[in-house]
Amino acid sequence: MTSAVKIATETTRVLPREIFPKENLLHHHELNFTRRKISKNEILFSQGDQANGFYIVETGSIRSYRTSGSGEKQHTFRIYHPGNWVGIRDAAIGGNYLHHAVALVESTVLFVEEEELRRLLNSDSEFQNSVFRYVTIEAVESENKIYSLGTRQVHAKLSEFLLQLSESQDSEEDLPFTREIMASMIGVTTETLVRALADFKSRGWVEIDKRKIVIKNEEALLRLLD
């Protein structure tokens, strides 16, 4: 059985790239939503479903992914943490969701219906700006990921992934990243990922146990991104 992975860091730092904004819509005075508790591995929506709204993660973690044409392979796009919005782009555009969304752990989400989204987009300039900023940064992150997958070597891909994850994750929270999910996010096989992690560990850059990966040398990981 593959162990969950927790990413932690021992020092404070600033990443070279901005991560997703954590806009706090939970206290928006006009936001109407439905709170929903979901179990581990429960599906929020599937690729191709009608995009009838979006979700705000209140607690827990949500994974978005797509499947291959045969359905045998999964490619993980993003892990959403508390404060992140899931499906906002598809709901704003209209049509269908372009990916699957599943709970990695027991989670609580706030569902905002498409009608409510349209109302806020038409009446609330602050909300409009928040959505524009969020979707823009999401697009930039996707573009950077495509560049990374196409041009960077395995060690650089893994370094970027670990640094981004440690920035977005609460250092006290265990997240169930399997090695398979990590590998799919950086576009390598599980075996290649395991070898790269072992190399990082042997160099003293990270410490690994059954439930977490602790970054020991951020400077070394950052140098791989140059």
Score class of each variant (00 low, 15 high):
2 T>H: 13
2 T>A: 13
3 S>H: 03
4 A>W: 05
6 K>V: 01
8 A>W: 01
9 T>I: 08
9 T>L: 02
10 E>L: 07
11 T>I: 11
16 P>R: 05
18 E>G: 11
21 P>D: 04
21 P>E: 02
23 E>I: 15
24 N>S: 07
27 H>S: 14
28 H>F: 04
29 H>R: 12
30 E>T: 15
31 L>H: 08
31 L>S: 07
34 T>Y: 10
35 R>V: 08
38 I>W: 05
41 N>V: 02
42 E>C: 04
43 I>Q: 14
47 Q>L: 00
47 Q>C: 01
51 A>H: 03
53 G>N: 02
53 G>I: 01
56 I>F: 12
60 G>W: 01
61 S>P: 00
61 S>I: 00
68 S>P: 00
69 G>V: 00
69 G>S: 01
71 G>P: 05
71 G>V: 02
72 E>P: 00
73 K>E: 14
75 H>C: 09
75 H>T: 14
77 F>M: 14
77 F>K: 09
78 R>F: 11
80 Y>Q: 03
80 Y>V: 01
80 Y>M: 03
85 W>E: 03
86 V>P: 10
88 I>T: 08
88 I>W: 04
91 A>P: 04
93 I>S: 11
96 N>R: 01
96 N>F: 06
98 L>W: 00
99 H>I: 00
102 V>S: 12
102 V>R: 11
104 L>R: 01
106 E>N: 10
108 T>N: 09
109 V>A: 04
110 L>N: 09
113 E>D: 14
115 E>R: 13
116 E>F: 04
119 R>W: 07
121 L>R: 06
124 D>T: 02
124 D>M: 03
127 F>N: 02
127 F>E: 03
133 R>P: 07
134 Y>L: 11
136 T>A: 14
137 I>C: 13
138 E>Y: 10
139 A>S: 12
140 V>Y: 07
140 V>A: 07
141 E>K: 13
143 E>N: 10
145 K>L: 08
147 Y>T: 14
149 L>V: 07
152 R>Y: 09
157 K>A: 08
157 K>V: 07
158 L>V: 06
159 S>T: 05
159 S>L: 04
160 E>C: 09
160 E>V: 04
162 L>Y: 02
162 L>T: 01
162 L>M: 06
166 S>N: 07
166 S>F: 01
168 S>M: 08
171 S>F: 13
172 E>M: 08
173 E>R: 12
175 L>A: 02
176 P>Q: 06
176 P>N: 09
180 E>D: 13
181 I>D: 09
186 I>Y: 00
186 I>L: 03
192 T>I: 14
193 L>H: 03
193 L>N: 01
198 A>P: 02
201 K>L: 12
203 R>V: 00
212 K>P: 11
212 K>T: 11
213 I>P: 07
215 I>H: 02
216 K>C: 06
217 N>P: 05
220 A>V: 07
220 A>G: 15
222 L>P: 04
226 D>N: 15
